[in-house]
Design a protein around this nucleic acid. Structure first.
Lengths: 229, 229
DNA sequence: TGACTATGACTGACTAGTCAGTCATATATT
DNA sequence: AATATATGACTGACTAGTCAGTCATAGTCA
């Protein structure tokens, strides 16, 4: 009597069901492998949102499962445990971003144009989006997940810094940038953008920030006033 | 069950006025009020360290109690619950910092000197210290503690931005700063310092940052190369 | 093609453990 | 003694991780 092995369970309709809380109607998904991949993607997506909203410790796997429209056990078919799930998640989300960024845009025009295009892209893709919150999440959890911080430094930060430095050196060589020491601290070039990301997720309600315009002013500082053409 | 356990408003001890904070290793502590204040201070100190190291959700009150050399129940003599403890904590730690900062230094010399002195102070007092980690903690937990984010914005950010703006406007009026639009975005002035704080707590092991030097370069950007006087 | 079997993705009730908050008791102060 | 403080064992709500069992699909054979 104590045990009531799963029996009643769902009467029927496990097949076309999916009418779970997930909401979005899953595509037919012909074969098993495809379905599995879809579920995995759903878990990743759901987990990302929960982790961003609550942080690592406060996130419940039950909530992730519910949001993904999946049973809790399913999560463990795809990830070893909560911790390694979090670590893997960051990789999964970041890798494609890095891939896109390393696809450098056409190196035409002035250095300022290059940087402006790059920054504009960054603002559009990161600020106020899921990706921006991910940055904040990494700042938040980094110290407790050295492997995540390491990964992020290796894959994103060090590369970004190197790329910015190259750009700055080009600008100096071309005479567009006067402050030669800037090449030693590419962080300065990027700082306002990072601050904008953090600002938006913390203080947007108090004082929204026009990141695009702020960036323009910052670039004016580095390149000198833009001549209106 | 809808549980409504927490009821008792802050019991007492809120008025435990500031006494000699010096209180270190269990001095006899003559009167009760003093002892209570000491215990409270020990709890605040311990809680701060635990919260910084683990974040809000992952911090155990048992650990705070142990670190403070106090029984768990004692914590509840001083704070209503974990959540309000965290909120109060941020206030307790930040208020004296704000108090110190608003004690403006002698407004002598050039604007650049003013800012440099201010920044130097900031670097020494914040970067790599407990205070720096507190900034990271606020960034991390802010979204989950709107009251903390609000408080921080009101007490620190908005004041800091206003002060910086005043300084920038002075610099523009005196002809030290050429970029007039900078006054619209004091964040640009502060951004590298904030980035330095975050950088140190996340990536110091990979690539330590000479914040002092970076700041010098940044100020060169704003004021023009420094003339060696 | 249709029927029968094998596979493994998926489920969710369950277990073992954790931790915030309580309170009866003990200790210190007046 | 009376009162104010402090203690830490205890409780109950909550959750990460497990696993016996289910069932849609893939594979096999007649």
């Amino acid at each position: 009597m104590t045990k009531k092995p799963t029996q009643a369970a769902l009467p029927t309709a496990t097949r076309a069901s999916a009418k779970g809380p997930a909401g979005s109607v899953e595509a037919p998904a012909s074969n098993r492998a495809t379905r599995a991949a879809e579920r995995r993607a759903a878990i990743v997506e759901a987990a990302m949102e929960e982790f961003i909203a609550r942080g690592f410790a406060a996130t419940r796997l039950d909530d992730i499962a519910k949001r993904a429209g999946v049973a809790k056990g399913t999560i463990y078919l795809h990830f070893k445990d909560k911790e390694s799930m979090f670590e893997e998640l960051v990789r999964i989300v970041i890798v494609p971003v890095v891939a896109r960024l390393t696809t450098l845009p056409p190196p035409a025009g002035s250095v300022r144009d290059l940087i402006e295009a790059f920054a504009g892209n960054f603002l559009k893709e990161v600020i106020g989006t899921k990706r921006g919150d991910l940055v904040r999440l990494i700042v938040a959890e980094g110290p407790r997940f050295p492997s995540v911080a390491d990964f992020y430094y290796r894959e994103v930060v060090s590369r970004g810094i190197a790329a910015m430095r190259a750009l700055i050196e080009l600008g100096i060589a071309r005479g567009e940038i006067r402050e030669k020491d800037l090449a030693r601290y590419p962080q300065i070039l990027v700082a306002p953008a990072m601050i904008a990301v953090i600002w938006q997720s913390l203080f947007a309600r108090h004082a929204p920030l026009d990141a695009q315009d702020m960036l323009r002013v910052h670039l004016d500082l580095i390149f000198g006033e833009r001549r209106t053409t």
